[in-house]
Amino acid sequence: MSRAPGIIFGFLAIVFLVLILWSRRDDTAVVMTEPELTEEGPVDLVAGPAVADPVPAAPDPAVTPAPAPAAPDAAAAPAAVAAAETPPPADPGPATVVAGAVEAPREVARGPGLGAPATAEEIARLNISIPPDGRNLPPGRGTSAEGALVFAQQCVACHGSRGAGGDGMVTLTGGLGTLTTERPVKTVSSFWPHATTLFDYIRRAMPLNAPQSLTDDQVYAVVAYLLSVDDIIPIGTVLDQTTLPLVEMPNRDGFVNWWPEPAAARN
């Protein structure tokens, strides 16, 4: 018996919210027809806000099975209307509602489940991503001396001597110490935080005219060459699965993660 007031209150709250949603839907409908001047009352002639009332806060999922916050946009509008029309459940006990809200925070349809199993070998053959820990680096090795040859044959035409760019070419080297100056120069040497990214990118995308044409040894070598131009690694260093992730890039601490966006930056 002691739950009765709670149940009644919960029921009333839901009816109330449904009514609010319903009336908001009507508001939208009015706005979408030809605007009627007289319905607005006196017009604020000195730059009154175009949208007077703030956007409604998302309904508290703990008290009502209202449509998802994203619902009242054009694409999802029918869903919102349908939800508003649905009568409240017969027994809207608080526990039931909360559980429902927690279990279904978003309304995502279920698919027919037609994905076919992908085998580990299949994945291994197509996964070319190399994160900073070096996981997924392939076997192989290379030195800057070997890489200088690759660079001279396959890269210099588009990146200039020693990767220094010029004449509209993409610059790969130089620029160290410029990031806080009036003319920051962002290059692999001065800016990139991870050597693994260099390997990943060259292996997947360079040379531009023949991507994925280099052997893994050639990629290790040309990475070693580029990193040796500004003495990030000493000449003679062998780069491989083990040594590449250990390379310390000059700007490795130069990035500030903006996801999720720092609260202080939100205005």
């Binding site: 962002k186 800016f191 990214t197 993660n257 903006w258």
Partner: peptide
């Protein structure tokens, strides 16, 4: 990293 990140006045970059 190299692209689509933004350098701030102190030399660090928003990533």
């Amino acid at each position: 990293t190299s692209k689509y990140s933004e350098l701030m006045p102190d030399g660090t970059a928003r990533q």
